[in-house]
Write a protein that binds this DNA or RNA. Structure first.
Lengths: 188, 188
DNA sequence: TGCGCTTTTTACCATTTGGTAAATGATCCC
DNA sequence: GGGATCATTTACCAAATGGTAAAAAGCGCA
């Protein structure tokens, strides 16, 4: 749990008792590679924090193709938060792409923290908003060519090429597998 | 101010007195076409709500090219909110691309609403998070070809081609002006 | 109205990327 | 270990997009 606490304390202060309370509300969840954390068409039921592993956000476009929209790895929240809050159904899947260890909070427990810890809402919203902000900044830039997008991807996620299949990275970058394979070859 | 109040009440309830308080903290701001609402490298000082007009988010990439990252129009918040909250400097410009009428809240006034209206923080955070969420969903999809991106842009922003220059739309969609012009021609 | 300026369109060709298919490489399971 | 399955690379050609340049259209202003 230390990772989670360290993460939270970036956004505000909690005393020992409050930290204990947060810990008591979280549960360990192990996901196997390919397991879903949440699914398109369903209402997200939990907020997660990734202790170990990589999760991707993905959906199927109107031609049935599977598109990877984002990658989320250690020390980050994972949740379709707007739909979690509003009890509305999600439009994407959140899927483990390696074996993962998460700390998860049920909606009930997550809300109880708001009621019992003064200042929790402030911390919570800063966390959520920073996550959303970073997601929008770390993603591939549409006006760059595919090679540049891949090079920037490597800077943002240096370890990923070893951890996740090429096909996921290709769809994330908006190119075909073949093109990405060619780009890799030309870089060397 | 009715537009603003209608917008806010989507996210929670306020009584008449509270509505008056919100109104009293907002100020009208008229922007001329090409004026900046906030600038890269500076700390955002205000939250805005667009009553009339179109604003774009843009920045200069490492080759000095100007990239339009998003469009924001009527009945929407406009603010680099994470940097506004954290008093950190923004990485992009928010620029009026038509004459605009905004209602703006200084940081001081915005924070006073939190202190004086119970439940304001809840409303505020829902507004901000929905804005961030929508921005991430309305944008061009990198895995689609340029024609599809333009067609979806037209669905999301049907009136824009008449209101904003082609060059902004082109950089938003990640294509050159020439390509976008050709795409327009082929669609007809 | 006519001039100068900016925006948009068009044309040409070079380059990048996609689609299809096959070959190679890696992994899993029996 | 061997065979089946999946992931990645390579090749070939077609299609889409970019770069440069010039023409046409639109717009503000005297």
């Amino acid at each position: 749990m230390e990772e989670l606490i360290g993460y939270i304390l970036q956004f505000g202060n909690l005393n020992k008792q409050q930290i204990e309370l947060v810990i008591s509300k979280g549960q360990i969840l192990q996901l196997k590679k390919e397991d879903y954390f949440s699914e398109a068409g369903k209402i997200p039921k939990e907020v997660g924090f990734i202790v170990e592993g990589v999760v991707r956000g993905c959906y199927y476009n109107n031609t049935g193709e599977e598109i990877t929209r984002c990658f989320i790895s250690e020390n980050s929240l994972v949740c379709d938060y707007v739909n979690f809050e509003a009890d509305t159904s999600s439009s994407e899947y959140l899927q483990a792409i390696t074996d993962c260890c998460l700390i998860v909070f049920s909606k009930k427990n997550w809300e109880e923290l708001s009621h019992t810890i003064v200042g929790w809402d402030n911390i919570k919203n800063k966390m959520v908003q920073l996550c959303m902000y970073q997601k929008s900044r770390k993603g591939p830039v549409i006006s760059q060519d595919a090679t540049t997008r891949y090079l920037e991807f490597l800077e943002n996620y240096p370890l990923f090429p070893n951890r996740v299949p090429l096909s996921y990275i290709a769809s994330y970058l908006g190119v075909t597998q073949q093109s990405l394979s060619r780009i890799r070859k030309n870089i060397r």
